[in-house]
Design a binder for these strands. Sequence first.
DNA 1: GCGCGGATGATAACGCGTTATCACCGGGAG
DNA 2: CTCCCGGTGATAACGCGTTATCATCCGCGC
Lengths: 122, 122
Amino acid sequence: MSSPRKHEEVWSYLTDTDGPRSAHEVHEALEHTGIGIATIYRALNAGAESGVLRVVELPGGSTRYEPASRAHHHHFLCDGCDTAFDVEGCADGVRDLLPPDFQLNGHEILLYGLCADCGGAA
Amino acid sequence: MSSPRKHEEVWSYLTDTDGPRSAHEVHEALEHTGIGIATIYRALNAGAESGVLRVVELPGGSTRYEPASRAHHHHFLCDGCDTAFDVEGCADGVRDLLPPDFQLNGHEILLYGLCADCGGAA
DNA sequence: GCGCGGATGATAACGCGTTATCACCGGGAG
DNA sequence: CTCCCGGTGATAACGCGTTATCATCCGCGC
């Protein structure tokens, strides 16, 4: 479909960072390269469609993306800086709580609080 | 501050229904009363500020509200009709997975799938 | 070196949820 | 009955994340 020059730049940033990132966050992080916001969105959408990236929808308005290669994990959302972090592991046992006529396709565990930079260690 | 005539109508609808509801959903449900969308938002914001309602932010763009009196529980979000349902119980043990310099303030467990009406029982 | 075509970046346009505006209505006091 | 005033509803305006547009740039083939 295309041989974009900057898509992999975006994808590799997502691989190098800890936690899903929004288009806005990627743009800020790669600002020094002069990349435009339009290209960010193109790279993210292309990655999601090609299966390289996984879409992570967390509260807060903006869609986030992470490498699809990451193993099952969950997320921590900082109330201070609105940054999302990966959290390893998964407390299972929730699927039993669902009514029998509901079909479970997936789940997300979201932790809220303050990250280290925002006073979590204070 | 005010003695609104229709706020309690909104609040009692939220009490009677199962799961958090958005302004749009409340408007549809109370359409027969002729209530306007502006009043819905006024009632929801007033309820949230006065502590009667709790704000529930789930993926999908629109903020949802539920009675603050409800005990700790989690939510199921139907991929088909985008309706949210309450899920009793809570699989704990996640807080151990957090780095020690992070401060945990709360958590949300989100289940995805199809509700009974959308083919979950098929 | 030259020309072509896809990729890029700045920005306008869009969709949608929410909020502000404003004229109207309805109920209570006098 | 009349006046007054807060509550209400229709709708315009807003904010923001995302997408479309379009002129320009870059790399490759020739």
